[in-house]
Computed example of a mutant assay.
Amino acid sequence: MAQVTFINKPVTLIGNEVKVGDQAPDFTVLANDLSPVTLKDSEGKVRLFSVVPSLDTGVCDQQTRKFNEAAAELGDNVIIYTVSMDLPFAQRRWCGAAGIDKVVTVSDHRDASFGEAYGVHMKELRLLARSIFVVDENGKVAYVEYVSEGTTHPNYEAALEAVKALSK
């Protein structure tokens, strides 16, 4: 299992670690309008899941803005989700204030379904550990990064290169 700290304190991750080559686990999260979103909803597309503890923090804000900018250049066959435990209403408000219009924010607050399916639910905080997952159009995991310290940035370039390699 991935070893992760948050503000330099070890946290317990609930769920199974996902690895490159695995079939992506299904999940149910909530869209900003409270409708359910599952892995199948984006079947046939390359998916990047940008997982953050909370949009209301500096690194999470920057991470979401970075992927929103990148989304404009990736084409219609790619969808980027930002997954957090933030309430759907707070996500919608944050996106409106930040001008985020290409990344799809989804909330895992109800069941921690994504967090547990991908092994990123931090037990002590009931937040998601910063991580990136790239899933191909057939549901196979092509890239994984569990960021070892939750307050640091992921490797944006490596994640985007993984997406670009799949979307050619």
Rank of each mutant, 00 (worst) to 15 (best):
Q62V: 11
R110T: 14
S54P: 03
S42F: 11
R93C: 01
S35N: 15
T82I: 01
L30V: 06
S131N: 07
F89M: 10
A112Y: 12
L166V: 06
R126S: 15
H109A: 07
D56R: 08
A71P: 01
L30T: 05
K45R: 15
V37Y: 01
R93M: 06
Y143M: 05
F67D: 00
E73Y: 09
L166F: 09
D61P: 02
A165K: 15
S54L: 02
A159V: 06
I79E: 04
A112F: 14
P154F: 05
E69A: 12
I80S: 02
P154C: 08
V106Y: 05
G150Q: 09
A98D: 13
E69C: 08
D33H: 11
E116V: 12
A117S: 15
K102A: 08
L160Q: 11
Q62T: 14
E124F: 11
V163I: 02
V46Q: 05
G139N: 04
A159G: 05
E73Q: 14
E145I: 07
L160C: 13
L48N: 07
P53K: 06
Y156P: 10
F114T: 10
S35D: 15
R92Q: 13
E43A: 14
L34P: 05
V120I: 14
N68D: 15
F114M: 12
K66H: 15
R47S: 10
T152P: 06
Y81S: 00
V51P: 01
D41L: 00
K102H: 14
A129S: 15
L74F: 13
D41Y: 00
L160A: 13
H109V: 07
C60L: 07
P88N: 02
N32K: 04
S107W: 03
S42D: 09
R126V: 15
V59L: 04
L125C: 06
L125I: 11
L87H: 04
A112W: 09
L87W: 01
S42W: 08
K66L: 11
S107K: 05
K66A: 14
L127D: 04
L34F: 15
V134N: 05
Q62M: 14
D33M: 12
V134F: 06
N77L: 01
E149Y: 00
Y118N: 07
A97R: 13
L166P: 02
V59D: 01
L166T: 05
A31V: 00
S148K: 14
A129L: 10
S113C: 04
K45E: 10
R47K: 15
S84L: 02
S113I: 03
V83F: 09
K168G: 15
A112P: 04
N77R: 03
A159C: 07
M85I: 07
K140S: 03
V141R: 00
V104C: 04
L127S: 07
F89H: 09
A90M: 11
D33W: 10
G44D: 10
Q62A: 14
K40F: 03
A159Y: 02
T105H: 01
Y118T: 07
L30K: 12
V51A: 03
L74A: 13
S50R: 02
M85F: 07
D108K: 12
L166Q: 06
V106K: 02
C60W: 02
V103S: 01
